[in-house]
């Protein structure tokens, strides 16, 4: 039942965007090393960056005393990641739909939607201060030796 994880990371980073970028770069490098498709990597980049920025800006309010706990595990065909902040949490159901006509030009509310679009699973804990996301690797495109 246990999965073969190629790499795992479990660390607490400060509420600092530079630290977030470092963690993100390490994750992207792991995906690259394991030849994940570009479109998968693009979506993961987008979703994980949104999660990290939400944790730092909205969750921890950029408080340098607070940290963000990042855990991710990568197998041959799946990424599992959890991002937890020390904030009060939020109710994702209360985030207005940014694609409604009246919200289209509001400069907010799109991060969560993009996370849900690009990841296979997006869940929050009850308090709303931890997001758990999964991405199932796309099937490799068989564009070679397909000629009939």
């Amino acid at each position: 039942m246990s999965e073969d994880w190629i790499c795992t990371t479990d660390e607490k980073i400060s509420s600092d965007t530079g630290e977030a970028r470092r963690v993100l770069d390490e994750l992207l490098a792991s995906l690259g090393k394991n030849q994940w498709a570009e479109e998968d990597t693009f979506g993961i980049h987008l979703a994980v960056e949104e999660a990290l920025m939400n944790a730092i800006k909205h969750g921890n309010q950029r408080d340098p005393e607070k940290s963000v706990h990042v855990i991710y595990k990568l197998s041959a065909d799946r990424l599992h990641i959890s991002v937890e902040d020390e904030g009060q949490g939020f109710n994702p159901e209360e985030v207005p739909d940014p694609t409604l006509e009246e919200n289209l030009e509001l400069p907010s509310g799109r991060g969560l939607m993009l996370m849900r679009t690009f990841m296979s699973v997006v869940d929050f804990n009850e308090r709303g201060n931890r997001v758990i996301m999964e991405k199932q690797r796309s099937a490799p495109s068989s564009d070679s030796s397909e000629e009939s």
């Binding site: 693009f42 980049h45 987008l46 960056e49 920025m53 030009e105 509001l106 400069p107």
Partner: peptide
Amino acid sequence: QFLSSAALNKLIILDR
């Protein structure tokens, strides 16, 4: 290569 929702927000404000 990449654009986040924070960037979209900036573009919406710029458009205004």
